[in-house]
């Protein structure tokens, strides 16, 4: 009638472990791949660059971990990037759109939008560590948020003097 204690104990251990394994399978399953290497060539048009920049913003650049594009409902934690191309032209006196973007990504603490706390890492340094070409792509992507991407690799980005 009574099952042996040893069997019971094994059943409890195995049962509890199985139960937690099962719970682990219930939640959404998502595998994160390391960011792929993106080829950026000299001949790329600004629009093509912006497309690469979009990939970077989602993946390796980790921009969209914090920022939103087109936020709906609830308070903002970090500045929303929708239509940022327009605002960048006039946000800081003396900085045109390109300078403003370059400063925002390479020296994020130089200007912090009112109402937000500083905390963004410089994306050309580790751990994100985007290359110069990739920075161009990200800036092109920013320009395309409510505007037209114009930057090419021929232009030099101010504020982002090398990864070191």
């Amino acid at each position: 009638m009574r099952s042996p204690v040893g069997v019971n104990v094994v059943l409890v251990v195995a049962g509890a472990t199985l139960f937690y394994t099962y719970v682990g399978q219930l939640v959404p399953q998502k595998e994160l791949q390391p960011p792929p290497k993106v080829e950026i060539t000299q001949e790329m048009t600004p629009v093509q660059l912006a497309k690469v920049g979009d990939e970077l913003a989602r993946g390796k650049g980790m921009c969209l971990t914090c920022h939103t594009v087109g936020h709906s409902g609830g308070p903002l934690r970090y500045p929303d990037l929708a239509g940022v191309a327009e605002r960048a032209k006039t946000r800081v006196a003396g900085l045109d759109q390109l300078h403003y973007f370059a400063q925002s990504v390479c020296q994020p603490d130089a200007f912090v939008v009112a109402g937000f706390a500083p905390g963004m890492p410089a994306i050309h340094r580790p751990p994100i560590g985007l290359s110069d070409e990739e920075l161009h792509a990200v800036v092109a992507w920013l320009q395309s948020q409510g505007g037209q991407a114009t930057i090419t690799l021929k232009e030099k980005l101010p504020y982002c003097g090398g990864p070191g």
């Binding site: 251990v13 195995a14 472990t17 199985l18 937690y20 394994t21 719970v23 682990g24 399978q25 939640v27 959404p28 399953q29 998502k30 595998e31 994160l32 791949q33 390391p34």
Partner: peptide, 19 residues
């Protein structure tokens, strides 16, 4: 192995460790 596995896979490995 650089990718981050799914939670389900992680749960399996944890269970193996526990056993």
């Amino acid at each position: 192995d650089a990718f981050t596995p799914t939670l389900g896979f992680a749960a399996n490995v944890v269970s193996v460790c526990v056993i």
